[in-house]
Design a protein around this nucleic acid. Structure first.
Ligand SMILES: Nc1ccn([C@H]2C[C@H](O)[C@@H](COP(=O)(O)OP(=O)(O)OP(=O)(O)O)O2)c(=O)n1
Length: 1219
DNA sequence: ATCTCTCTTCAG
DNA sequence: CATCGCTGAAGAGAGAT
C-alpha cells in the first residue's frame, strides 16, 4: 500500500506536468533503441511531421491574423484503441494544439504520458492504465471546442471497474432486508471501512463465502420484493462476519493493491473534489465527475426529463459509492453502484452509434492529403470548430436518426409504465402468465425502496415481448432457429467433422514444403443474397441485402456487389446501409436453402478428384488440387490447367445451384485467399507467377491479410508504422524481433504472410477441442430463478450437442455478458455494451449430461456473482474433450467406463425443465464445483439415493447384449461381412423393435452404441494411450453401420414414447428418455395444468432428440459415402506408381502394420483388429492370398516382441477363418 | 521450459 | 412491430510447476 502510494505520487501529474514533452523526447529514444533503428527513425519522422504540422497550422492561422491556442502544450497523449473521432483526428487536434502525440505507449515508457484517451477499455487495460489519467475522446474535442483544456476528471473513462456484482450483492440485501436496516448498517459501520477498490476482483470474493451461507436462502423464503435478486444473495450475517476482521486489520488482503480512484483523484484534483462535496468529512465526499456529468448532460441537451431524473439518482449513488471507496474495508463495498452519468452514457451511445455506422472498419490511414485538408481548414478556426462540433454531436449519438434515440428512450419509459400496469398486461401473454404463476408467492407490489434500486432495474425489457419466456426451453430453440451466426457456426462444425477424415491425412501426408502444392479457394459471391434471390429475378442488378425482415437495426448478413458499390458491407446495420443506399432491397434468410446449395457445392467438390477439401464455411472451401491440376497440365501450362479446372468447377456449381462462385488459386492457402479477393466477383484468379505475387502483396493492406483484423493491424501500424504487407515484409531484416513486438508466434507468422509464405496444409487434421453454447440476444432476467432456468436449458442444449458428437469433457467455462452502462442499445433485445467475464473449472472427470453440466455451471455462475438483472448473455463451454467412442467415429465404448466417468447425477437436484417447480435439493449444488476432488464422492453418495434402477444395469452383458445382437461382429462373425460387402446400405441395417429396449436409462442415445464387455481386458486409459489407430490407416464402413443401427433403434424408441396415454403413463414413459427423474408422487400432486406443462417439456425434449438423432443419421450416411469414396481414392493413390490399381501394395501394407504395432505398444484397439480382419478378408476374397499370408506372418513377427499383442494374431487368424 | 488459466482476436 | 449479437480456433501473457 505504501509503495503504491509512493508510486502514485511519483506518477502524479503534478510531478511531470512541467516539461513532459521534453521528458518524453528524452525517454523516447531510449525506449526505441530496443527495437531497432527503423522504428526510432520512424518515430522521429512522425514526431517531426507532427511538429511540422503544428508549425504549419500556426503559421497558417497567423496569416489570417488568428492564433491556434496551444492547449495541450503540457500534454503527452496516447490514444488507445478505437475512438471516435478516430485516433488520427485526435492526433491532429492534439498536435495542432501543442500536444505531443505518442504512437506507442509501451516503447516510450508510460511514464511520459500525461493522458490516455480511449473510448472503451478491456478489464486488463483498465487495470494497466489505472494510475493514469484516462479520458474519453471528448476531453480532446471539448478542450478544442472551448479553447481551454478541460478538466480531465470530467471526462474520466475509468470510473467503475465493473462492480456489477457489488450491485448484485447490494440488491440481494435489498431483497431480504428493509431499507432501514440496510441504511443503518451502511452508515453504522462505515467508519470502520478502510481503503478499498472498486472491484475487478470482486467476483471471486463470492467464492470465499462459506457455501452454507452462500446457499440461497431465498429459495425457501422468497424475497418480499419482486425486484431482482442477486445470483447469490448474501445473508447479512455472512457479510458481517466477514467484515469483522477488517476492523482489526485494515490492510487490504489483495496481493497486488491497486490505487483507488478516490485516492488517486485526491492527489491532484482536490480542489474540485472538495468543491463538490455535499458534506464534509471522509464519508461525504462525492466524486467530482458528478459535476462534469451534469455539464455534459446539459451540453447534450437531449432527453432532459429522463436523464435528469436518472442523473439525480446517479449522484446519490456516487455519493454512496464514494463512502465505501474511501472508507471501505477490503470487503465488498456494499453500497457501490455502477457509475451512472451521462458521460458514460454518451460514450455508450457513441459506441453504439459507431457500431451502427461503422460496421466495417477500414484501416485508418494517416493520410497526408487529409492532413493537408485540415491544415487548410485550420486557417479559419471556425471551420475547424464546426467540424469538431459535428463530430461532437455524433459522439453523443445525435448522429443517429433521432427516431433511434427516441426509440430506445421510449422503451425506457415504456418500461416504467409497463411496470405499473404489469398486472393486466401480463395476463394477456401466456408466457407472462406462467411467470406470474411461478412467482405469485414471492411477488408483492413492493415498489422500489430506494432510488438506487430503480437504476439497475430501469431499462429491463419485459420478456413478455418475446414469444417465449427466457427460461422456457423454446426460447433457446427459437433463437437458434433464427440466428444466422448460429447456423454458420453449426454448419461449419458439421462440415469440418465430415471432412476431418483423419484417416486420409495421416495416410498420405501432403508434402509440407510449400511451393509444390496447388491450392484453390472457392467461395460463393454474396452467398446469402445469391441464394435468397434465386426465386427473385426481379432483384437482379438491384442492390440487395439479407437481414432480418429489413428491420432498422438488423444486421446485414450479406449484401450483393451492387449494394457494395454504395459502401454497404456485411455486418452493417440496416439503418446505416439504407442511408448509404436508399434503394437497398432486403430479402429474408432462407436457411434451409443455404444448406441445400451448400450441399450441392460440396458434392461437386467431392466428385472433383481433389486431393483434400477443407470446409471454411457453408459457402466456402479450400481445396488442394495438386494432382488434378498437374494431371491436366500435360498439354498446357500449370496456370492454364488451374484456370481450366477452376472454371470447370465454377461452371458446374453455377449450373447446379444457379449461384456464382469465385475461385482464387495459388501455391499456398494464404495466396489462394488473396487471389480469391482478386477473383471476386464471379471470377477465377490464378496466381503462380512470383512477380504477380509480389505485386499483389505490395498493394495488399496488412489488414487484408487473413488473420489480421482491426486490432492487430492497429498494433502493427502503431508499432511499425506500416500498413502495406509488402512493406512490412521488407522490414524483416531491419526489425529482427518481430516476436517481441507482435508476439512469439504472430510476429514471425505475420512476416511470413507478408512475404507470401504459408506452409499450412489444406487437410483438416484436428478433432475439435471445445464445444460451447452461447446466447447474448434477448437475454433479460428478472430474478435468479429465471437465470437458473435459463442456465439449465443451456446446459441441456450443450449436453445434447455433446451427445450428438459423442464427446465428454472435463473442463467447463462459464461466460457472462454483463451490461456495462445503464444505456440500452437501440438494437431491439440486443446486448449492448457489455463486460465479458469468463470463469472456468476443472471438473476432475469427464462429464456430458445436462445435470452434470448444469451443476458445475451453476456453481461457476454463482461464484461470478453478478446481478441477473444486468446479465445480457450467457455461455457455457466444455473443453478437454474426450471422445466417447474410441477415436471419434468408433462405436467402441467400454461399458465400465461409461459408468465410472459419467455418473448420471440425475434430476432430483433439478427441476425437470428448470422452470416449473423446485424439487428440493438435498445437497447444496453450489458446493460441488468448488470441491472437484470430492465431486465424485458426493455424486456417488447421491447415486446411493437414486441407484435402485441403476443397479440393475450394472451387469454389463445380459440386458444390453440382447438388444445388440450385431454388436461386436469381431466376436460373432457373420453380419459384418455382408455389411462390408455392401457398404453403406444403411437401410439394410435392421431396425430393432423398441419393445426389446434395454432398461430405460440406457435408452439414452449414447448407450445403445456401447458394447458389452470384451475378452481382452484393456482398460480404457490404456486404450487412450494407443495414439495411433489403425482406423486412421484403413478406413472402414462397418462401424458406421453399427452406429446407424443403434441410432435407428433409438429413434424408434423415442418415437414410440410420444404415443398417447394418461399423464402418469406419459411421464413414466418419457422420463427416462429425457434423462430426468421426477418423483411420481410429487408429479401426481401437481395440478393438471402443470402436469401438462411437464409433459409438454418432455415432449419437446424428445422431439429435439429425435431431430438430433435424425440429423446424426444423415451425417453418418454422408460420412459413409465420403469414407467410401475416400477408400477408393486411397487405393488409387497407393497403387499410383507401384503395382496395379486393385492389388494391395504388400510393401506398403507391411510398413503400415509395423507402424501400427510400433505405435500401439500397449496393444491394439480392438476396433482396429476388427478392421484388420475385415481388410484381410477383403484381400483374401479378392484373391490376394499371398498378401494376406505375408501380412499375418509379418504381424506375428512384429507382435512377438510385445506381450500386449500376443493374442492379436491368433484373433486375426480366427477371424479370417470365420469369415 | 512447459503447462494452466484467462483474456483477446478473428472469421464467416 | 422491433430482432434473432454464434462459435471454435489460436494466440498472448501471467503465473504455477
Ligand atoms: N458478418 C457476417 C459475415 C458473413 N455472414 C454470412 C452471410 C454471407 O453470405 C456468408 C458468407 O460470408 P462471406 O464473407 O463469404 O461474404 P459473402 O458470401 O456475403 O460475400 P463475398 O464472399 O462475395 O464477399 O456468411 C454473416 O451472416 N455475417
Amino acid at each position: 500500500m505504501v509503495n503504491q502510494r509512493a508510486k502514485d505520487t511519483y506518477l502524479s501529474p503534478q510531478a511531470r506536468v512541467a516539461g513532459e514533452k521534453e521528458e518524453a523526447e528524452e525517454y523516447g529514444p531510449t525506449g526505441f533503441g530496443d527495437i531497432g533503428k527503423y522504428i526510432v527513425n520512424k518515430e522521429r519522422k512522425l514526431l517531426n511531421a507532427d511538429i511540422t504540422l503544428r508549425n504549419t497550422a500556426i503559421a497558417a492561422a497567423k496569416e489570417q491574423g488568428k492564433e491556434v491556442p496551444q492547449l495541450f502544450k503540457d500534454c503527452v497523449v496516447y490514444v488507445n484503441g478505437y475512438t471516435r473521432p478516430s485516433a488520427n483526428e485526435l492526433r491532429r487536434m492534439i498536435v495542432i494544439h501543442g500536444g505531443v502525440y505518442l504512437t506507442n505507449l509501451h516503447l516510450s515508457g508510460k511514464t511520459g504520458v500525461t493522458h490516455i484517451v480511449a473510448s472503451n477499455l478491456t478489464k486488463k487495460k483498465k487495470l494497466e492504465f489505472q494510475s493514469y489519467k484516462v479520458v474519453t475522446p471528448d476531453w480532446v474535442v471539448d478542450s478544442v471546442k472551448e479553447s481551454k483544456v478541460q478538466d480531465w476528471a470530467k471526462y474520466r473513462l475509468i470510473v467503475d471497474t465493473g462492480n456489477k456484482n457489488v450491485l448484485g450483492l447490494f440488491k440481494a440485501k435489498m431483497a431480504t432486508e428493509s431499507f432501514q436496516e440496510l441504511l443503518d448498517e451502511e452508515l453504522g459501520d462505515g467508519g470502520d471501512l478502510t481503503q478499498s477498490l472498486p472491484t475487478i476482483e470482486e467476483p471471486t470474493k463470492c467464492s470465499i463465502i462459506p457455501s452454507s451461507l452462500a446457499s440461497p436462502a431465498h429459495s425457501m423464503k422468497p424475497p418480499v420484493s419482486k425486484e431482482p435478486v442477486a445470483l447469490f444473495p448474501r445473508p447479512s450475517l455472512a457479510r458481517k462476519a466477514e467484515r469483522a476482521p477488517s476492523v482489526e486489520s485494515p490492510a487490504p488482503k489483495r496481493a497486488k493493491p491497486i490505487p483507488s480512484f478516490s485516492s488517486f483523484e485526491l492527489s491532484f484534483d482536490e480542489e474540485e473534489l472538495f468543491n463538490s462535496l455535499p458534506r464534509p468529512g471522509a464519508k461525504g465526499e462525492s466524486e467530482s465527475r458528478t459535476m462534469g456529468t451534469q455539464e455534459t448532460q446539459t451540453q447534450e441537451g437531449t432527453d432532459k426529463t429522463e436523464e435528469t431524473q436518472e442523473e439525480t439518482r446517479g449522484q446519490t449513488e456516487d455519493e454512496a459509492r464514494y463512502e465505501t471507496v474511501t472508507t471501505a474495508d477490503n470487503d465488498v463495498p456494499v453500497s457501490s453502484l455502477p457509475f451512472s452519468s451521462s458521460i458514460l452514457r454518451a460514450v455508450d451511445q457513441s459506441i453504439d452509434a459507431v457500431k451502427a455506422e461503422d460496421a466495417n472498419y477500414d484501416d485508418l490511414e494517416f493520410s497526408q492529403s487529409e492532413l493537408l485538408g485540415v491544415l487548410s481548414q485550420v486557417g479559419d478556426g471556425s471551420v475547424l470548430e464546426q467540424a469538431l462540433e459535428t463530430e461532437g454531436e455524433i459522439q453523443v449519438g445525435k448522429g443517429e436518426p433521432p427516431d433511434q434515440l427516441e426509440d430506445s428512450d421510449f422503451d425506457f419509459l415504456d418500461h416504467i409504465s409497463a411496470e405499473e400496469s404489469a398486472d393486466e398486461s401480463e395476463k394477456e401473454d401466456p408466457a407472462v402468465e406462467r411467470l406470474a404463476k411461478e412467482e405469485s408467492s414471492g411477488r408483492s407490489v413492493t415498489p422500489p425502496i430506494r432510488p438506487e434500486d430503480q437504476l439497475s432495474t430501469t431499462p429491463i425489457k419485459r420478456t413478455s415481448k418475446l414469444p417465449y419466456a427466457i427460461d422456457d426451453p423454446r426460447f433457446i430453440s427459437h433463437f437458434y432457429e433464427k440466428s444466422r451466426l448460429h447456423h454458420l457456426s453449426t454448419w461449419k462444425a458439421r462440415l469440418q467433422a465430415k471432412f476431418e477424415l483423419s484417416s486420409k491425412n495421416k495416410q498420405v501426408p501432403p508434402p509440407i514444403s510449400g511451393g509444390d502444392r496447388i491450392i484453390m479457394h472457392l467461395d460463393f459471391d454474396s452467398f446469402f443474397v445469391a441464394v435468397s434471390t434465386l426465386d427473385r429475378p426481379d432483384l437482379t442488378r438491384k442492390p440487395v441485402a439479407v437481414g432480418s425482415g429489413g428491420s432498422r437495426n438488423a444486421d446485414i448478413a450479406s449484401c450483393n456487389y451492387e449494394a457494395r458499390k454504395y459502401g454497404v458491407k456485411n455486418g452493417m446495420w440496416m439503418s446505416r446501409a439504407l442511408k448509404l443506399c436508399p434503394d437497398l432491397q432486403t430479402v429474408d434468410y432462407n436457411f434451409p436453402k443455404y444448406e441445400e446449395v451448400s450441399e450441392a457445392f460440396y458434392t461437386i467438390l467431392r466428385e472433383s478428384q481433389l486431393d483434400y477439401i477443407r470446409p471454411v464455411s457453408v459457402d466456402e472451401a479450400l481445396v488442394d488440387a495438386t494432382t488434378l491440376i498437374e494431371a491436366n497440365a500435360t498439354e498446357c501450362s500449370l496456370s492454364e490447367a488451374a484456370e481450366t479446372v477452376a472454371k470447370a468447377i465454377a461452371t458446374k456449381v453455377r449450373a447446379t445451384t444457379g449461384c456464382n462462385i469465385s475461385v482464387g488459386c495459388s501455391r499456398n492457402i494464404l495466396l489462394a485467399k488473396l487471389a480469391l479477393r482478386e477473383a471476386k466477383p464471379n471470377g477465377v484468379h490464378v496466381m503462380f507467377d512470383q512477380k504477380a505475387i509480389s505485386q499483389l502483396l505490395d498493394k495488399t493492406k496488412i489488414s487484408e491479410i487473413p488473420g489480421i483484423g482491426r486490432s492487430i493491424a492497429g498494433q502493427i501500424r502503431e508499432k511499425l508504422h506500416v500498413s502495406i504487407a509488402g512493406k512490412l515484409a521488407r522490414l524483416k531484416d531491419v526489425i529482427p524481433n518481430m516476436s517481441a513486438l507482435l508476439g512469439p508466434k504472430r510476429g514471425p507468422q505475420i512476416v511470413d504472410f507478408c512475404l507470401g509464405k504459408d506452409d499450412s496444409q489444406v487437410a483438416v487434421q484436428d478433432e475439435r477441442k471445445s464445444i460451447s453454447v452461447e446466447i447474448s440476444y434477448g437475454v433479460r432476467f428478472e430474478n435468479k430463478k429465471q437465470f437458473d432456468g435459463f442456465v439449465f436449458n443451456m446446459s441441456a442444449e450443450l449436453a445434447s450437442r455433446m451427445e450428438e458428437i459423442s464427446v465428454e469433457g472435463s473442463q467447463l467455462t462459464c461466460k457472462l455478458y454483463v451490461r456495462k452502462n445503464e444505456h440500452e442499445t437501440p438494437k431491439y433485445m440486443g446486448h449492448g455494451q457489455c463486460d465479458i467475464y469468463n470463469k472456468s473449472v476443472s471438473l476432475g472427470c469427464s462429464v456430458s449430461s445436462t445435470s452434470e453440466i448444469n451443476l458445475a455451471a451453476r456453481g461457476q455462475f454463482a461464484a461470478m456473482g453478478y446481478d441477473p438483472v444486468l446479465v445480457r448473455g450467457v455461455g457455457i463451454q466444455i473443453t478437454k474433450l474426450t471422445r466417447d467412442k474410441g477415436k471419434g467415429k468408433q462405436s467402441m465404448l467400454d461399458f465400465n467406463r461409461g459408468r465410472t466417468t459419467r455418473p448420471d447425477l440425475c434430476a432430483p437436484i433439478m427441476p425437470p425443465a428448470g422452470t416449473q417447480f423446485d424439487i428440493p435439493a438435498d445437497i447444496d449444488p453450489e458446493v460441488l464445483p468448488f470441491l472437484p476432488a470430492s465431486l465424485r464422492k458426493q455424486i456417488e453418495t447421491r447415486m446411493g439415493i437414486t441407484g435402485g434402477s441403476r443397479g440393475a444395469l450394472d451387469p454389463p452383458k445380459t440386458p444390453t447384449k440382447k438388444n445388440q445382437p450385431e454388436m461386436g461382429s469381431f466376436f460373432s462373425p457373420s453380419p459384418s461381412k455382408s455389411v462390408y460387402a455392401t457398404p453403406g446400405l444403411s437401410q439394410s441395417s435392421p431396425i430393432r423393435a423398441p419393445s426389446i429396449s434395454p432398461s430405460p436409462r440406457r435408452a439414452k442415445s449414447v448407450s445403445p452404441r456401447k458394447r458389452p464387455g470384451k475378452p481382452a481386458a484393456k482398460t480404457q486409459i490404456k486404450r487412450q494411450k494407443t495414439n495411433v489407430r489403425i482406423s486412421h490407416l484403413l478406413p472402414d464402413v462397418q462401424v458406421c453401420s453399427e452406429e446407424m443401427a443403434a441410432l435407428q433403434n433409438e429413434l424408434a424408441i423415442l418415437k414410440a414414447a410420444l404415443g398417447e396415454g394418461t399423464p402418469v403413463e406419459l411421464v413414466t414413459r418419457m422420463m427416462p428418455l429425457v434423462n430426468s427423474q421426477t418423483d411420481m408422487n410429487i408429479f401426481m400432486e401437481l395440478s393438471s395444468s402443470i402436469q401438462q406443462e411437464v409433459i409438454m417439456d418432455y415432449r419437446n425434449e424428445i422431439q429435439r432428440k429425435i431431430a438430433s438423432i435424425s440429423r446424426q443419421l444423415e451425417d453418418l450416411k454422408e460420412k459413409e459415402r465420403i469414407e467410401r469414396s475416400r477408400e477408393g481414392s486411397n487405393l488409387r493413390t497407393i497403387s499410383l506408381g507401384t503395382v496395379t490399381r486393385n492389388r494391395p501394395d504388400t510393401q506398403e501394407l507391411l510398413s503400415r502394420l509395423s507402424q501400427w504395432v510400433k505405435s500401439s505398444y500397449d496393444g491394439p484397439h480392438e476396433d482396429d483388429v476388427t478392421h484388420m480382419i475385415r481388410r484381410l478378408r477383403h484381400y483374401r476374397n479378392e484373391g490376394y492370398h499371398e498378401v494376406v499370408n505375408a501380412s499375418v506372418r509379418w504381424l506375428s513377427k512384429l507382435s512377438a516382441k510385445s506381450p500386449d499383442w500376443s493374442g492379436v494374431v491368433r484373433d486375426i487368424i480366427v477371424g479370417l477363418q470365420e469369415g
